[in-house]
Each structure stands twice: as C-alpha cells, then as structure tokens.
Design a protein around this nucleic acid. Structure first.
Lengths: 140, 140
DNA sequence: TATTTTTTGTTTCAAATGAAACTAAATATT
DNA sequence: AATATTTAGTTTCATTTGAAACAAAAAATA
C-alpha cells in the first residue's frame, strides 16, 4: 500500500513538473498561455472544429474554451465562421497569422520534447507512447 | 512533426482526465479537494514536514500550500508544531483524526487505481512505474 | 558583531476559474 | 405541428489562484 506509487498522484505531479516549465516559456516567448496553446494545437491539427469538439479533445472546461477562443480571435490568430449545420455552433480555424505563430512555436515545443525524450532509451520511448495511447483509450 | 504525439500536451490531458474523475469523488465522499489530498498524502508518508518540503515533493505553489495547510489545521486533520531549528518554519503532521481520515480515503483511492491498472498487462504496469520514476529523476 | 542577502512563509490584490443560470437553436415527444 | 427536452455556447458571480509585496528569521559577508 505504497502511496508514493499511487498512479493518479504521481501522474499529476509529473504533468505539473513538465507544464510548469513550459508555461512560463510560452508566455515569455510567444505571449500565449497554456489554454491558448492547447486550443492552438487542436486548431493546427483540425481544419474546422467547434468548441464542443475542442472540449472532447482537450478535457478543458467549456467556459474556459469559450473564453480562450474569444481571446484567440481578439489576438488575431483564429477565424470564426458560422457552422453550416448548427446555428448555435461556430467553426474555428487558424488564420494566416495563427499559422505563422504555430510555425514559430512548434519547433520550439518539439525542441523541448526532444530534450526530454533524448534521455529515454528507444524502448522506453516506445513504451511511453504505447502507454499514453492505451490510457487514452481506457479513459474513453 | 506530429503534435498529437507531443508529450507534455498528451501528458497534461491524460493527467486531467484522471484527476477530473477523482476530484469530484473525493469532494463528495470525504469533503477534501485535490490540494488537500496531495498534502495529506505527503503528511501520511512523512512524519515531520515543513511547507518547503511539501513544495519540493508536490510541485505545488507555496501560497497554495500555505493555505491548504491552514485549512487542514482548521478542519482538524493536521497538527502544527514549531520547527526545532528554524523559527520561520513549522512542522506539520497528521493528528489522530487525520490518520483516521487517511485510513478511510486510501483504500478508496487504491481501489480506483486498481481498476485503472487492471486494464494494463503486467509488463505495461512495470513499464509505467519505471517511466514515472525515470521522469521524476530527469526532472530533478 | 553589524550589515546585507537569502530563505521561509503569509497577506494582498488582480486575474483565472468554473458552477449555475441563461440564451438560442436543435432534437424528441406528444 | 405544437410543446418539451436536450444541446451548444455565453454570461454572471463567487471562489480559487498565484505574482508581488511583505514580515521575520537565518545565513552570508563585511
């Protein structure tokens, strides 16, 4: 009964450790916070997403998503268009400025990840990505 | 350059997924929030800890720790005593009520973890615990 | 040993957060 | 078709959060 090993606890500490370091860097370097970063990643990968879809993909609160999208539109990184099938929803996508931003941020992010992953063996890297995938499937 | 695979991002989503589910349960069942839970875990494992030590162990902000400890003392789960060597600091430890609480909470927490881990193979479980340990060493 | 710097922890205050209530539209039910 | 229910997203408001300023003690330096 070793609580030091308690998984959710360990995982949240680990996740905090990693994102604490990253958050400050993003703010200083690009003027975006973690919420904005998460939403930008989704928008970068997905052409037309609604707030609901972002909620599903990020596990973020809908209020937070609503406000983050508003900010990103105000900052001029994101375009919003009416949803063709649902008048309540909007489709969001990166505009040119957003694309440009992401092309600056991503290499930076990947460099950080690289630095972290370089300290794992190739087997460990495989295991890690396998485990993350598996957990995400388990947790719906 | 697959951002879906971006580790810090994946990890924070995963960690959120897991703790979102847990947080509500702890609040309903035991009236404690995640901050309190984290500090209680530390106090359960360590006999005499200061706020500083808790910060090191949990990655939590010092203001949050200060307030969480105050709450836990008020709720009657934690005793505080002057630090023998440093008049600025205090030593904290679970009192009887705190011990009693943890003996109720822990089996519950472990049951949840069990449920999660039962969906991994024995190899995957080993890999997971190895990886968490390794990351924690890498990240100081 | 007097003075400066650093460390530990708390308080203040402005910003971030999210539950609850709300609007408006879509879907289901009668 | 009319009405009720559910869904998508926003606003309000009370709470949580943490940066910055602070107090007090310890450690370092002169």
């Amino acid at each position: 009964m070793d609580l030091n090993q308690f998984l959710p606890y360990q995982l949240s500490i680990l996740s905090l450790k990693i994102s604490n370091g990253i958050a400050e860097h993003y703010q200083d370097q690009f003027g975006i916070n973690i919420s904005e970063w998460r939403v930008l990643v989704i928008l970068y990968k997905n052409p037309d997403v609604t707030a609901k879809r972002i909620a599903q993909l990020t596990q973020m609160d809908k209020v937070r998503i609503s406000r983050t999208l508003k900010t990103l539109v105000q900052k001029g990184y994101v375009a919003q268009r009416p949803h063709p099938l649902d008048a309540r929803a909007k489709n969001y996508e990166l505009n040119d400025r957003g694309q440009y931003l992401m092309r600056a941020v991503i290499p930076d992010a990947l460099r950080y990840e690289e630095e972290l992953l370089s300290q794992l063996t190739s087997d460990e890297r495989d295991q890690l990505s396998h485990l993350i995938g598996k957990f995400n499937r388990i947790l719906k």
